[in-house]
Write a protein that binds this DNA or RNA. Structure first.
Lengths: 239, 239
DNA sequence: GAACCTCTGTACGCTAGCGCACGTAATGAG
DNA sequence: CTCATTACGTGCGCTAGCGTACAGAGGTTC
């Protein structure tokens, strides 16, 4: 596909037939998402959806006392704002930019129109949503059973899959907030990985040195979710 | 609505316009779901969906080592088998009957046809799915932050909402499996509730004596999810 | 260069829940 | 009535992670 000025890094968009994409393209607005930006707040209707290109967005569930934890990650494989076409208009989760980068922004109403034409776009969006549900489920069980060490590996790999290189710009504080644990817990877990030579940590910059090593230590949740994304987001769509 | 022989206890079905329901009704097969019956296994395509009437079905996420934990509950408010219309054909979760009872069974292909007519049925199914996603998310964060005592209260209330009376037929062993904790952990938590006079436990029979008391002890997760279900499954549908 | 802030390392007591094991009471089958 | 089974109560040592606190190291500001 060689459309003018089209950045094809978003997997969900590239699944679209060329004609659908061409129709959509003029309305895709390229935006830069800075770290920490909120794309969606609990109970507030979104007026746009986002297709990340190299940005990573965390979906967070927030408790009354203000604490929160990540329930899913969205990167260049997906879309932020499923509640729009699911019809609920709002959702209880927050969407926060966890790794700054680029994204395509699309008007919510336009997405809905596209969705309700019941074409391939609808299929892909529904498939993606099902994959997202798998991620939510696996996060739940991972929270119940797996150690912080394993979860950290999972989280690093999730990010790695959605980034162009092996450099993650995130402080331990941020990671702790995402995982819903203490910052010093992350320090300890990251310390082990660093001692094992898998990562190098330096003031908010993590460099992954040995990805296979991480994959050895991670809990099964990582691969389970990844495989399910690959299965559900493979072409072609069979009805 | 007074259709012949129609059991109107399933909220999702009752949301349908009368004409849609009449079309569906001849194909709704009433079935009895015994305790422990599996309605869906990980990775296996379902050929039917189920609309519980007074049965309760647990959606479980299963790990490689065989342990599992509940990620959501489906009762008379919903449908078992969303992966069918979401298009993924299979899902990674198991669906196990947690409380025996009745349900309507519908052929999967017929449901898909109904869904792809893009009428109210589709809207309701999507809304329900979004509510289910909220339940998944809240389960994840509840697993992370809340105590077993709170989770037990949540679980009892979830069941209570989906049952006709205040009697739950479930052993502590079963509850432990659902919550993904030790059996003796449930014994202790239930012991506290019993001492407080909120429930009476006797060999697999729980009687809830003081529902408001449970609601005082439960974590916020219960109400958050319940309210979201009510919001998303209220008539009328606004596009 | 000095003051300040941010990020990371480390330590310590504490608690919820785990794994395991054993005892006991209720129930049902023969 | 007897016996096996199921369900529940209890105890004990153990560990991961919590809450908190403090210190040092790397940047930044003026």
């Amino acid at each position: 596909m060689s459309l003018p000025q089209y950045d094809s890094r978003n997997r969900l968009l590239t699944l679209l037939p060329e004609e659908d994409l061409e129709r959509l393209l003029p309305h895709l607005e390229r935006v830069t998402l800075p770290l920490g930006k909120s794309l969606c707040e609990s109970g507030v209707e979104m007026d746009h959806v986002y297709f990340p290109l190299d940005a990573i967005v965390s979906l967070l569930c927030v408790l009354e006392n203000g604490t929160s934890a990540e329930i899913a990650v969205v990167g260049n494989e997906g879309i932020v704002g499923v509640s729009l076409f699911m019809g609920g208009r709002t959702t209880l989760s927050r969407a926060i930019v966890q790794s700054a980068g680029e994204a395509y922004r699309l008007d919510g109403q336009r997405l809905k129109n596209e969705f309700y034409q019941a074409g391939e776009m609808q299929q892909h969006l529904l498939h993606y949503t099902q994959a997202l549900m798998t991620q939510l489920s696996q996060t739940a069980i991972c929270n119940r059973y797996h150690t912080l060490d394993q979860q950290l590996c999972r989280w690093l790999l999730l990010c790695l899959d959605r980034l162009p290189d092996t450099n993650l710009a995130m402080t331990q504080n941020l990671i702790a907030d995402m995982l819903g644990v203490r910052r010093s817990g992350v320090t300890q877990a990251a310390g082990k990985l660093q001692q094992a030579g898998l990562i190098a940590y330096h003031r908010g910059q993590i460099t992954v040195l040995d990805r296979p090593g991480l994959e050895e230590r991670v809990c099964e949740c990582y691969k389970v979710v990844k495989d399910e994304y690959d299965r559900l987001m493979a072409r072609p769509v069979v009805m």
